[in-house]
């Protein structure tokens, strides 16, 4: 099914409250997406600027996402029970449940970054590494923003191109990983800070993976088909240090 015909299928239901139920899910997902984006942005800013107050805000914001995920899940179950959605409507409901779960995890990742701000506070952070982390976060944020646009437009095409781009994040993560290792080897006093930064980088890379998951769900919602071909993967950190 093309994007166009899918758009056309969004004609109103005979039962108006059914449309309201489905719109509720779309609206809440968009809200969750906004919160998740902001949390990631603020977590990285608080890390770069060593801002514990901002990091504290990120940590408490995570509750918003936990609540939203639960409410979306409850509403989705209620819609299934009351209306027995079919075809595109069914995919909408199932998709909302899955996307809410991914966004909730994005919140957890951002919260984890924020928690580390206190630990690395006051330690000398090499500018280059922090810049690298910032760049990684920017890419992840772009992926997250675009995948939420793809969701609101039900665009399979956009979803597919977002999924194809995850390898950029993986590649940068791998190079950051190497740099952090080098830095730790140079001076063992860097190990604590670098280990925390390594986890931060890993968290950001995972956020990219969640954006990819969401892209796959959006593709499914729009077309009814699952993306099965392997997407490009450039995360080579599992083998870094093994024989190089």
């Amino acid at each position: 099914m093309t994007d166009e015909s899918n758009q056309a299928s969004l004609a109103a239901h005979i039962v108006t409250s059914y449309d309201e139920d489905l719109q509720y899910l779309v609206r809440r997902i968009a809200e969750m997406g906004g919160v998740a984006e902001r949390m990631l942005e603020e977590a990285v800013v608080s890390l770069v600027n060593s801002d514990p107050a901002l990091s504290q805000k990120v940590i408490s914001d995570d509750l918003l996402l936990d609540d939203a995920e639960r409410q979306i899940g409850e509403k989705a179950v209620l819609i299934i029970a009351k209306r027995q959605p079919m075809a595109a409507d069914l995919r909408d409901v199932i998709g909302a449940i899955r996307i809410a779960a991914d966004l909730e995890r994005v919140g957890d990742m951002a919260k984890n970054i924020a928690k580390r701000v206190l630990a690395v506070q006051g330690m000398a952070q090499p500018k280059k590494l922090v810049r690298g982390l910032d760049h990684l976060a920017e890419l992840a944020l772009t992926q997250l923003k675009e995948v939420l646009d793809a969701y609101s437009q039900r665009s399979a095409e956009m979803a597919n191109s977002i999924r194809e781009r995850d390898d950029e994040i993986d590649a940068i993560y791998t190079s950051l990983f190497r740099e952090l290792l080098t830095y730790m080897m140079e001076d063992p006093r860097n190990i604590t800070a670098c280990t925390h930064l390594l986890f931060c980088a890993k968290n950001i890379e995972r956020i990219g993976d969640h954006a990819t998951n969401i892209a796959e769900v959006v593709y499914y919602i729009a077309t009814g088909d699952q993306l099965v071909n392997d997407r490009p993967k450039d995360d080579e950190t599992a083998t870094v240090g093994a024989g190089d």
Partner: peptide
């Protein structure tokens, strides 16, 4: 889950 025809889609989803 994924009908081909728009009329099927509209009918089974209550449109």
């Amino acid at each position: 889950t994924n009908p081909d025809d728009q009329r099927t889609q509209d009918y089974i989803t209550g449109r």
